[in-house]
Design a protein around this nucleic acid. Sequence first.
DNA 1: AAACAGGGGTTAA
DNA 2: TTAACCCCTGTT
Length: 326
Amino acid sequence: MNIKGFNVTQDNCSSTGLPQIFVKDVSDLSPLGFDIRGTFESGQCIRWKKVEDGKYYGIVKGRAVNVSLFENGRDLVIENATLEDFRDIWFDYFDLGTNYAPIIKEVEKDDFMQSAIRFSGGARMLVQDFEETLYSYILSSQNNIPRIIKLVDSLCSLYGEKIYAYPSFGDKTLMGHSFPDSETLALNFCTKEGCESCGSRNGLCDKPFAGYRCPYIRKTALMIYSGEFILDENHLASSTAEQARKELCRLSGVGEKVADCVLLYSGIRKDICPIDVWVEKTIKHFYLDESAKKSEIRKFTQDYFGKHAGYAQLWFFNYSRTQKPV
DNA sequence: AAACAGGGGTTAA
DNA sequence: TTAACCCCTGTT
């Protein structure tokens, strides 16, 4: 069946009985193919887990799926998904409307970027839920990745809704938890009532795991839930990066770095390169010098990589962090 | 064993 | 511009 330009088929998994889909020839979307590992382990997402080499488990829009490549290395396999899901969720989520060849051409301007792209130019830029990226990256401040993962997982299991395998196929297997919405967080997060309703005396109140980030989460959730902050993606996308950043910084716990991550990872704009410690180190080493300030680094990435700065960051960050060329 | 440093930062002074 | 912030983890 042709959906949005892709040949997609659906059948039932012989062992689980769950519906699964095959998206033909996704590897053509980049000269580097479709890199599953690079996509999920490049720091842009928190909640995807490796279940085996080349196969990752995650929850998006209430669907718990496993994602891998077919044995031919060309087709995308999504378990516990239907053709409708492909159209409604996965096409956008995996940025499948974008061929990376022209972007790569524009962004591989030097030897370093060429190596970076050779290494991870098959990683897809995920288009994730705005609120999920928002809360996740608020929690990321001054934290290392394993702990961020722990925090976000706890947040979901405490406040998210239970997600089951495809309901229309009768299976009531618990697959995990959704990311909690702003209403739930505004009303329940880290309040006495919230912890009691989780039935956990060991919950966030007795053992506040997020420390000084707790009030950030609650305040931001309240701003969104109350309507004090209204997400206007079109406006954020069409204004300058500077303005968009400033708008998001109205939210508690959101500074420039977190704002940039949210704008990029929720797919609102692709011209932003979030400056974390790795990016900073990398840019200083290859393009500027040790004394370069954050603002100079930000300006450099905007000028040098232009409207594709987000893709550049995705690819070189992954390369820098795992290959340590610096 | 107990102190220490530092982590994908933001806030308030 | 700078220190303080909560908590966890890995290191002396």
